[in-house]
Amino acid sequence: MSLTGVPLLLLAAAATIATGAVTVLFWSRGGRLRPVTRTLGILLLEALVVLTAGLEVNRREQFYPSWQALRGDTGTAAVTGEVRAGLLDGRVRSGSFEWRPPGLAAWHLAHAPAVSVPADYLSRPDVAFPVVLALVAPGTPTRRTPGAVTVTLAPTAATTATALRTLPAELERDLRVAATGWDVLGNGPLGAAFVRSVPAGLAVLDRPTDALPPALKAPQTLPSLRNTRS
């Protein structure tokens, strides 16, 4: 029987009326036990009145739509994942290195991007680091950002934001980096177009590097809307 259904509500109401009737009917009976039977009748009646009112309020407001909900059973457990190791984690050394992902040719860069990892990248293998994506002129020295994976990229006239849309997935595959809050440095229109072209929240244009999110372990998560629909 549903907690918020009419049958349960009617049952509770009927029980309340019946208890009231029986209490009145037996009010003058019971002999020496009369104080006890009267007291029990009153208490039961009071409890049923409260129960019926509570069922009606809950039916209207849907605080507890089911018996499971009333028991505190949510049927869901938050999942704590793990930060997946990057394919390059075994080869990364502190300092910077040339990054040659499979999709590199499609980006039409002046030369391969330079990547620098934070000093504690190797000593914290269970953490995803924030990302700084620096769009610079060819020949500009490699950028470094304390606490962040920094990708120094030298675009050419042939580089498009559409082509660079594959970069986040390539970087997330190769290194342990955060999936949101990337800082894209570079005042040119390419940086702005890249920020607009990637999913909302993934990248921010020209944010101060001290506003980067922290390096964190994998969060606790719940099923998402997409999972629910499927």
Binding site: E61, Q62, F63, Y64, P65, S66, Q68, A69, G72, D73, T74, G75, T76, T221, L222, P223, S224, L225, N227, T228
Partner: peptide, 9 residues
């Protein structure tokens, strides 16, 4: 994020 059930509790 969706919890399977539990109402408004």
């Amino acid at each position: 994020a969706v919890v399977a059930h539990g109402g408004h509790s």
